[in-house]
Amino acid sequence: MLQVKNIETLYGLVMALRGVSLELPENKITAILGSNGAGKSTLCKTIMGMLDDQPDKGTIWLDETRIDKKDTEDIVNLGLAYVPEGREVFEELTVLENLQMGAYTRKTSQAKDDLKRVYELFPRLKERQKQLAGHLSGGEQQMLAIGRALMMRPRIMLLDEPSLGLSPLLVKEIFGTIQRVNAEYGTTMLLVEQNAAMALKNCHYGYVMENGRFVLAGTPEELMADEDVREFYLGIRSEVSVKGYQRYKRKKRWR
């Protein structure tokens, strides 16, 4: 499965990832939590080979194949799919055309079955299949982005903030679908989320990222029990009064 070994990624002179290692267990959902600018999207983009000449240090492996320094197109062909932050659907193509682009590298006959499967997961997409993707609502676009990735029949799916800007009800629906895909098709998932409560409820293992490195890792139960996670990510205050000074110190410990 996918193994990230101690990678460092630079944007010019700014180091966005400072030694990140990660292993995705097969058929499981792994979540990454982290505040804005922690480097979560950068990690996904580095894995997908979307950043030129990155990672600067470290290696990325898919089974026995080294995939860093490969082109995005080749990485996709090896069975990785990325649902980017902000959906990035093809706005001036119809819903159906968007889904067909997901199946670009596959045979037409196979794609037909997958289309059925995606429509079954997201009936709303079927209703709107002739509509331009740019005219869909944010939630529908998110469904389309996930559906488009599923059309590749990926072994591994990276989902970057699928709940961004969605109503609580839709968030629930999307996570339900993610669970279902994982359970029914055994797709390995990497789930990047701001919505910590939802992510921890839906994953098998979780990491917490701060300033370009992982500062915590564990099962959802372990993470939910952690005081820092409770306070900073779930917004639960365990003690009645944590003094500002102590809080600062605790946050500092993570860097």
Binding site: M48, M50, D71, T72, E73, V76, N77, A81, Y82, P84, E88, V89, F90, E91, E92, L93, E97, Q100, M101, G102, Y104, T105, T108, R148, M152
Partner: peptide, 24 residues
Amino acid sequence: TKVGVAMKATQQNQQAARLMGIRV
């Protein structure tokens, strides 16, 4: 045609097109 649609897709969003495995 699939290639024709892929051309339009590439024009709209190159990064996303790459993520579909389209050789830009």
